[in-house]
Computed example of a mutant assay.
Amino acid sequence: MNVILKTERLTLRPVTIGDTETIHQLHSIEEVDQYNTLGIPENIEVTILHVKDLVKSNQGEQPQAYTFVIENDNQFDGLISLNLGRAKYKNAEVWFKLHPNFCSKGFATEALKKIISFGFNTLNLHRIEARCAIENIGSYKVLEKVGMIREAHNRKLLPLKSGWADNYVYAILSTDLR
């Protein structure tokens, strides 16, 4: 995948194997892990396998996902991904993780707006969903800022380190932006 997306302040570029160490550092931060079902990696080898999966899903004529590194001034700020569903349904699910040093600066909102636009305008998607733990106030506020609508509350769905957590489901339709 050679798709590079740009916003006023950010560059969203495809994840590469060269990002492994930085992604390992991101996934090893307790604050980032709090609402992450992936968990803190035991070692760098676990992260290598994870990054290889991300890179592989980005490849081919019909990628399964578009996973990007979020950069500001060539500095790693986090990750964002658009995971594609079955082609017939023209849907996808988005997720994002920001390094805590870059939270509350509007970067997640800016990156999410761009990837939603890419999904609807380039990939011709009909629906984009997102999910987050109900305690993850920062994430669901970002989802709401970009126009996503809360559609569901799933009980005890997420296996977090703290135990089973409830989950909100958000979605936005291509027609919502018109």
Score class of each variant (00 low, 15 high):
Ala87Phe: 12
Cys132Ala: 01
Glu45Trp: 00
His50Phe: 14
Asn72Cys: 12
Gln59Phe: 00
Ile23Thr: 08
Arg178Tyr: 13
Asn58Lys: 00
Ile149Tyr: 08
Arg150Phe: 02
His126Gln: 06
Phe102Tyr: 13
His50Cys: 01
Gly106Phe: 07
Lys52Leu: 12
Thr11Leu: 12
Ala165Met: 10
Trp164Lys: 11
Cys132Thr: 12
Lys52Thr: 08
Thr175Tyr: 14
Asn91Pro: 01
Ala65Leu: 02
Tyr140Lys: 08
Gln34Gly: 03
Leu84His: 07
Leu173Gln: 12
Met148Thr: 03
Asp77Met: 15
Leu158Arg: 10
Gly119Asp: 02
Ile172Pro: 04
Arg131Met: 04
Asn91His: 04
Lys156Ser: 15
Phe68Glu: 09
Thr67Gly: 01
Ile149Met: 11
Val69Cys: 14
Ile29Asp: 11
Glu151Thr: 05
Thr20Arg: 10
Arg127Trp: 04
Glu61Phe: 03
Ser28Trp: 06
His126Pro: 00
Val94Arg: 03
His153Gly: 00
His50Met: 13
Val15Asp: 04
His126Ala: 02
Leu112Glu: 09
Gly60Asn: 04
Leu84Met: 13
His153Trp: 04
Leu160Phe: 06
His99Asn: 14
Ile116Ala: 06
Phe96Glu: 06
Leu54Cys: 02
Ile116Asn: 10
Thr47Met: 01
Ile80His: 07
Asn58Gly: 01
His126Glu: 03
Lys156Asn: 14
Val15Pro: 02
Pro100Ser: 06
Gly106Glu: 10
Trp95Asn: 10
His126Cys: 01
Lys105Arg: 15
Glu144Val: 05
Glu129Ala: 01
Ala152Lys: 05
Lys113Leu: 08
Gly119Met: 03
Ile70Val: 12
Ile23Asp: 07
Leu112His: 07
Glu93Tyr: 05
Asn167Leu: 10
His99Phe: 08
Phe102His: 11
Leu177Asn: 08
Phe96Lys: 10
